[in-house]
């Protein structure tokens, strides 16, 4: 019963494409630009251009579209639901009517726009997480946040928290599995009963898990202190991030396109 073996985190797929090799900072910023743009534009052509941009990114990255759509699968119902809400709830020029339901022209447009917005948003973030390893993502976030140090933003601390979380997710999952097996062998039942009972049955898993997690945190803190950890000050970095010419080029193109699309549509 290796329930958790197949879960991969950060869903990163190693590769050696142009997109994979861009600096994580550039990728994160590019991603942000596209997302901001998505919420600024209000014309069909804008969505089309952004969609084509992201899709060509996926093609360049040589990642099988299957992986991209796997990310979409969980959110497709949310997209459909919000689209339907917009479709039926917007007041305006009625173009279609069944019984008490009516579809308006404005509703149709709003619904399609919101769906495209979410759709492209997921594609963009998937492209980022599929082509960037969690480590370089954390590194990129740390370096980007460190520009905000002047407002006392704890960039190093946030990155350290992310690293530790990434490091301990597999460990804690393994432990959850162990506890579950121990409870099942003593007759616990996690699979039948109604939702209330099933939730109640989770308590004997969660209690030991949390107790252990706190103990781990304590031991890790001591081990870190023993290795001379005292916050981000005066710390050097093992991993090096370098902006190459291709990163600058990529960033310029994205920014230029984003500005053009933002202004025109």
């Amino acid at each position: 019963m290796n329930i958790f073996r197949n879960i991969s985190f950060g869903q990163y797929i190693p590769g050696n494409s142009l997109i994979h090799n861009f600096d994580p900072r550039v990728k994160i910023l590019g991603c942000l630009l596209i997302i901001i743009n998505l919420f600024l534009i209000s014309q069909f052509w804008g969505f089309l251009i952004l969609g084509v941009m992201v899709w060509s990114g996926i093609i360049i990255s040589k990642i099988h579209p299957r992986f991209v759509f796997r990310g979409l699968r969980t959110i497709i119902y949310l997209i459909l639901f919000t689209m339907l809400l917009h479709l039926f709830m917007t007041e305006g020029e009625v173009i279609f009517r069944i019984w008490i339901f009516k579809i308006t022209k404005e509703g149709l447009i709003n619904g399609l726009f919101i769906a495209s917005r979410l759709f492209i948003l997921i594609l963009t973030t998937s492209l980022l997480t599929l082509t960037t390893s969690p480590i370089s993502l954390t590194d990129g976030i740390e370096r980007l946040l460190s520009y905000f140090k002047f407002i006392k933003l704890p960039a190093h601390e946030i990155a350290m928290m992310m690293t530790i979380a990434l490091r301990f997710i597999p460990t804690l999952l393994e432990e959850t599995e162990k506890i579950m097996k121990a409870q099942i062998s003593r007759g616990a039942d996690f699979e039948s009963g109604n939702i209330v009972n099933r939730t109640k049955n989770l308590i004997p898993i969660l209690v030991p898990l949390f107790v252990n997690a706190f103990r781990r945190a304590d031991e890790l803190a001591i081990a870190m202190e023993a290795k001379g950890y005292r916050g981000g000050e005066g710390r050097t970095h093992y991993r090096e991030l370098q902006i190459h010419r291709k990163d600058i080029l990529f960033f310029t193109i994205i920014t230029a396109l984003a500005i053009i699309v933002g202004i025109l549509f």
Binding site: T163, T171, R216, E219, L220
Partner: peptide, 10 residues
């Protein structure tokens, strides 16, 4: 406990 003294992800 080796698990509780490794900080980084690789």
């Amino acid at each position: 406990n080796p698990d509780n003294q490794i900080v980084a992800t690789t």
